[in-house]
Design a protein around this nucleic acid. Structure first.
Lengths: 270, 270
DNA sequence: AGATGCAATTCGATAATGCCGAACGCCGTT
DNA sequence: AACGGCGTTCGGCATTATCGAATTGCATCT
C-alpha cells in the first residue's frame, strides 16, 4: 500500500485495484478482503462503488471481481496526452516494416522506463513485451539513452533510488562503468543494449527531443543477437537514429540536420 | 455523477477523474471544486490521495491537475484481458497493409460500440478515431453487426435505452427498417455503414466469434466513399469477412469454412 | 523591494459518514 | 435436508471525512 494517504476509503479503493491488477483472472470478494485484512463488508462497500463507475466488473457466473472497462477508457485519454505517441506512430510502424524487428516507444517515469507504444515483429522468435509496463533504466537501451540526458543530480538520484541490479552477465552494475557508458551514448547519439537485461536480446535505442531540445522520450529496435549483428546491426543503428531525428523534427526540434530532413520531403503527410 | 454510491468519498474521487477526463489541459483545484460545488479543502484531500497513487499528476509549474500514468498502466492490463485483441492484432495490421484503409476492432459494452484497437490509414484523407471511445451501435457497421447477433430482447433493450438518434441523412431511425437491415446483415455475414454516422464515410464490418460461436467482437474497414466503392468495395467486403473468419478460427471457433482456412496454412506463426 | 492578489495547502472542531460484526439469502454439495 | 461457502444487507458506534478559516507560497504590480 502507498504512504498513508489523506482519505482512507479512497486509498483502500485503489489498493483493491492494485490487488486486482496483479490477478489475471478475477478474484473473489473473500480473497480480496483477506489480502487486505479487512472485513468482507468493508471491502464490499468499496468495491460496489468501484463497480458503479465501471472501474470494476463482476462476473455474472462466478461472482468474481476484475478490473473494468473504465480504466481502459481513461487510460487511453492519458495516452492521447502524450503528443510524442501520436506523432511517432507512423514512424515506428515504418521502422517495423523496414527492419522487421519489434519497435518500442518509451518515456522516463518515476526513474523507470515506461513503455508507451510498440510495433511487434512477426518473426516466430521475438521478444514479448507489454505496453504500460516498466523496466529498470540502467540495463535497457532506451533507459541508457534517457539517463544519458539527465542532469548529474537526477542520475545520482535514480541510481540511489533504484540501484543497479544485475539481470544478466552483461548488466552494468558499476556506477563508474555506467557513467562512462552514458557519456559514450550521449556522444554517439544512440545506445546499444547488449544482453544487459536478458540473454540473447540486443536493442538499439535513440533519443527523441521536444521543441526546446529536451530529451523526452526514446525509441528502440529489439531483436535476438542472432539477427541483430554485422550489417543488419549497422543498418538498425542508422535507421533508428534517423527515425528518432525525424520524430524530433516533427515535434518542433530544429537542429541543422533535422532541418535538412524536413526540406528534403517527409514520408508522411502533415 | 453516478447513482449515489455507497462510499461517498470514493464516488467523489471518481467524479474528479470524470471531470479531468473531459479537460484536455489540466484543471486548477478551484475549477474542480467549483464544478463539484464542494469546498476546496475537501477536493484537495481527495485529489492528493489520487496523486499519491499516480492516478493524478500535478504540474510543477502551473499547479494544475491532470490524469496520471497509473490509468495508462491499469488500462493496458484491462486491454490485455481481451484475448481477441491480442489474437486479432497481426490480422488487422495485415488488413491495413493490403487495403490501405483504417481498420477497427470493437466490442459491445453497455449497449454501445467500444473501440478497442485500430490501425490507421496513411492517406491524407482519413477518419480520425480514438481507441477507448464509444459510438452508438445503430449507425455504425460494427454496431449493426453486433446488434444483428443479439437476442430480440437485448436488441429491444438497446433501442429503448439509447434510442435511434439521427446523425446523417442515411441513419436508420425507424425500428422496423433497422430490424430488416439487421436480418440482412446476419444473413450475408457483413454490414455496410453507408454514411449513416458521418457524411462521406463508408465502413465494411464483419463479426468475430469465440469458441462457443458467440459473436463477441467485430472488425471494420473505414474510408471515404470516394475510395471505397465499386471493385475496391467488393474486395474490402471479401477481405474483411475472411479476416474476421480467420480471427474467429484462431479464437477456437470451428466452422466448416474456418477449418478449411486453417489447414490451408495461415499467414502468421502460432 | 515591498505590497497585493490569487491559488494551493494546512488545521482543527464537528458530526456525518464509513466501518464492522452479525444476520441474511442464495447456490451447489454432501 | 442439512451444510458450507459465498456475496450481500443492516444498523449502531466511533472513527474519519468534511468544511470554513487561517496560512503559506508564488507571481505580478507598484
Amino acid at each position: 500500500m502507498k504512504p498513508d494517504s489523506k482519505i482512507q476509503s479512497v486509498a483502500r479503493a485503489f489498493t483493491i485495484v492494485d490487488i486486482l491488477a496483479e490477478a489475471q483472472d478475477g478474484l473473489a470478494l473473500n480473497e480480496i478482503a483477506s489480502r487486505m485484512s479487512l472485513p468482507k463488508s468493508t471491502v464490499h462497500g468499496l468495491i460496489s462503488t468501484l463497480k458503479d463507475f465501471s472501474y470494476v466488473e463482476q462476473s455474472v457466473f462466478t461472482g468474481k471481481y476484475k478490473l473494468g472497462v473504465r480504466f481502459f477508457e481513461v487510460g487511453n485519454i492519458v495516452a492521447q496526452g502524450w503528443e510524442v505517441r501520436t506523432v511517432a506512430a507512423p514512424y515506428i510502424s515504418q521502422l517495423l516494416e523496414e527492419l522487421g524487428e519489434t519497435v518500442h516507444l518509451v518515456v522516463l517515469d518515476k526513474m523507470e522506463v515506461l513503455y508507451i507504444d510498440k510495433r511487434e515483429s512477426r518473426h516466430s522468435l521475438r521478444i514479448v513485451s507489454q505496453i504500460g509496463t516498466r523496466l529498470p533504466a540502467h540495463c535497457t537501451g532506451v533507459g541508457k539513452v534517457l539517463m544519458a540526458h539527465l542532469t548529474p543530480e537526477q542520475r545520482a538520484e535514480l541510481i540511489s533510488k533504484k540501484g543497479l541490479p544485475r539481470l544478466t552477465r552483461n548488466t552494468l552494475t558499476d556506477p563508474e562503468a555506467l557513467k562512462e557508458e552514458l557519456a559514450k551514448v550521449k556522444r554517439q547519439g544512440y545506445a546499444i543494449d547488449n544482453e544487459e537485461i536478458m540473454d540473447s536480446l540486443r536493442c538499439v535505442a535513440a533519443p527523441i527531443r521536444d521543441q526546446s531540445g529536451n530529451v523526452i522520450s526514446a525509441i528502440s529496435l529489439s531483436g535476438p543477437v542472432g539477427r541483430l549483428n554485422g550489417k543488419s546491426l549497422e543498418k538498425a543503428i542508422k535507421r533508428v537514429k534517423e527515425t528518432a531525428e525525424e520524430i524530433s523534427a516533427r515535434l518542433g526540434y530544429r537542429s541543422n540536420r533535422s532541418l535538412r530532413l524536413l526540406v528534403s520531403g517527409s514520408v508522411f503527410p502533415l
